[in-house]
Amino acid sequence: MTDDAAQGLETKPSEATAKTATAELIDLAKTVGIALLIALVVRVILFQPYTIPSESMEPGLLKGDYIVITKFDYGWSRFSIPFGPPLPKGRLFGRDPRRGDVAVFQLPRDTSVAYIKRIIGLPGDRVQVRNGVVFVNGKAIPRVQAGPTQDPGMIGLTVMRERETKADGKSYMTFDQGPGHPGDDTGVYVVPAGMYFAMGDNRDNSLDSRWPSSVGVGFIPAENLAGKARIVMVSWNDGASIFKPWTWLDLRWNRLLKGVG
Results as ranks from 00 to 15, higher is better:
87 L>E: 01
110 D>H: 06
105 F>Y: 06
48 Q>F: 09
63 K>V: 07
112 S>G: 12
140 A>E: 08
43 R>Q: 14
37 L>V: 11
63 K>S: 10
88 P>R: 04
126 R>E: 11
46 L>S: 04
76 W>D: 11
25 L>M: 15
47 F>R: 08
26 I>E: 14
113 V>N: 00
24 E>P: 06
50 Y>P: 06
128 Q>A: 01
123 P>I: 05
93 F>Q: 10
27 D>F: 10
102 V>D: 03
41 V>R: 04
51 T>I: 15
141 I>R: 00
49 P>V: 08
44 V>F: 09
55 E>Q: 10
126 R>T: 11
20 T>P: 01
76 W>Q: 10
54 S>I: 13
42 V>N: 02
120 I>M: 01
140 A>R: 01
36 L>F: 01
40 L>P: 05
128 Q>C: 02
63 K>G: 07
12 K>F: 15
101 D>W: 01
145 Q>I: 13
71 K>Q: 05
63 K>T: 13
61 L>Y: 00
101 D>F: 00
52 I>E: 00
38 I>P: 10
26 I>W: 14
73 D>K: 11
146 A>D: 14
152 P>S: 09
102 V>Q: 05
21 A>C: 07
9 L>H: 12
39 A>S: 06
58 E>W: 12
71 K>I: 11
67 I>M: 08
49 P>S: 05
136 V>M: 03
145 Q>K: 14
20 T>G: 14
67 I>T: 06
86 P>C: 03
12 K>D: 15
58 E>R: 04
125 D>W: 00
118 R>W: 00
151 D>M: 10
91 R>F: 05
24 E>M: 12
136 V>C: 00
135 F>S: 00
123 P>Y: 09
73 D>I: 07
106 Q>E: 14
67 I>D: 11
66 Y>H: 11
121 G>Q: 02
73 D>T: 13
133 V>W: 10
134 V>L: 01
127 V>Q: 01
106 Q>W: 08
119 I>G: 03
73 D>M: 13
138 G>Y: 06
22 T>D: 13
70 T>S: 13
92 L>C: 07
153 G>H: 06
141 I>Q: 01
56 S>M: 08
71 K>W: 04
45 I>A: 15
11 T>A: 08
65 D>E: 10
98 R>E: 15
59 P>G: 11
55 E>H: 09
86 P>N: 04
